[in-house]
């Protein structure tokens, strides 16, 4: 029992670490593409962020199963890039169908973001990091969820700041993505401050 208890504790720590100290967007820059384009409105940011949390948690877990139960026994570890991306694409498609069928209202708010997620590097990146960091199954659950929440937090904060920026005067060449990156940099700086809180 002790082993499992320790694993759960590790999962909680990893989850918080993935949100704050090792935020996937602010420390490894993954998921930047939708980040710069969608972060204009708070509402859209929440929609995409929630979809990312959901998809990331489940695909990371599914990919863990696929990697350790299928690829490792077959010694086909190098196939993980293809398999992970297929699983992610299939999962997104599946969720889209389910949501469309049972909750048209949710589909209207979340649906448009789902296809964007397949090409979100943060999703694939989380799965690849999960393999490289040799996380156990329980830790993987915490890690996938935490990475998603971390991404949501970053994009939400960004959208809030950008809405206010609409009224400020920004140098011409810096408008749009330029200023977004500077804000992201400042946020990353703030998140560096979390380092050492968790160890």
């Amino acid at each position: 029992m002790n082993g499992i208890g320790q694993d759960v504790w590790m999962a909680v720590v990893t989850c918080f670490a993935a949100i704050f100290t090792q935020n996937i967007l602010l420390t490894t820059f993954l998921g930047m593409c939708p980040f710069t384009s969608v972060s204009r409105e708070v509402k859209a940011a929440i929609g995409l962020g929630v979809a990312v949390v959901f998809v990331m948690t489940f695909t990371t877990v599914l990919n863990w199963l696929a990697y350790y139960w299928v690829l490792v026994p077959l010694k086909l570890e190098f196939f993980r890039f293809i398999l992970f991306i297929i699983i992610i694409a299939a999962f997104v498609q599946f969720v889209e169908m389910v949501v469309d069928r049972y909750s048209p209202k949710l589909y209207q708010t979340l649906g448009i973001f789902l296809p964007l997620i397949t090409v979100n590097c943060a999703i694939l990146g989380t799965s690849l990091f999960m393999v490289i960091r040799e996380h156990s199954f329980i830790v993987t659950i915490g890690y996938g969820f935490g990475s998603g929440v971390g991404w949501l937090l970053a994009i939400l904060a960004m959208a809030g700041i950008r809405q206010r920026l609409n009224e400020s005067r920004v140098p011409e060449g810096l408008r749009g993505p330029g200023i977004t990156l500077i804000i992201a940099g400042l946020m990353a700086l703030a998140f560096v401050g979390f380092t050492g809180v968790l160890s």
Partner: peptide
Amino acid sequence: VMPPGGFFVLA
């Protein structure tokens, strides 16, 4: 060399 620097330099 830390992550924030990447954002600033790219910007």
